[in-house]
């Protein structure tokens, strides 16, 4: 029996651009995942709480506004604090290459920037969950 993978697609921060998150959500659904989309402008607390209640395997965040150095690590910390040590956390969006090492240091497993084929994200999740 194939494993059921649940993914929370989340939009932290204040920018209102979720086309990318929706495309990713759809691609993940087409790949057979169960996708929970939080909607726009979520606080890190809301995202961590949703991840807990939905018992997801993956939290995938998208940001355009540039708030990622602040918000991504905050979500990681909150998720881990709530006891979800085994949840894979990935990020995406308009993120400068120079910021990526620090994000990975903070516990983001992988960062997907514009132009990433959605299949890469699917493969990454399948390989790491």
């Amino acid at each position: 029996m194939e494993k059921r993978i649940r993914v929370l697609v989340a939009k932290p921060g204040l920018d209102g651009h979720d086309r990318g998150a929706k495309v990713v959500a759809r691609a993940l659904r087409d790949a057979g995942f169960e996708v929970i989309y939080t909607g726009l402008r979520q606080t890190p607390e809301q995202i961590a709480e949703a991840a807990l209640q939905e018992d997801v395997n993956v939290v995938a965040m998208s940001i355009l506004s540039g708030a990622h150095p602040h918000l991504f690590p905050k979500v990681v910390n909150l998720v881990r604090e709530k006891g979800m040590k085994d949840v894979l956390i990935i990020g995406g969006g308009v993120i400068p290459e120079t910021d990526i090492p620090a994000l990975k240091e903070a516990g983001i497993a992988e960062v997907f920037t514009p132009g990433t084929p959605t299949s890469d994200i699917v493969d990454f999740i399948k390989a790491n969950v």
């Binding site: 659904r29 169960e34 996708v35 929970i36 989309y37 939080t38 909607g39 607390e45 939905e54």
Partner: peptide
């Protein structure tokens, strides 16, 4: 209908979904 699914309830229960007294699934 499809094997996967997108659940969007969280978007519509913003306040309730982050209350400690509530559990939405």
């Amino acid at each position: 209908v499809t094997k996967g699914s997108i659940l969007g309830d969280k978007t519509r229960m913003g306040t309730l979904s982050r209350r400690q007294e509530a559990f939405i699934r």
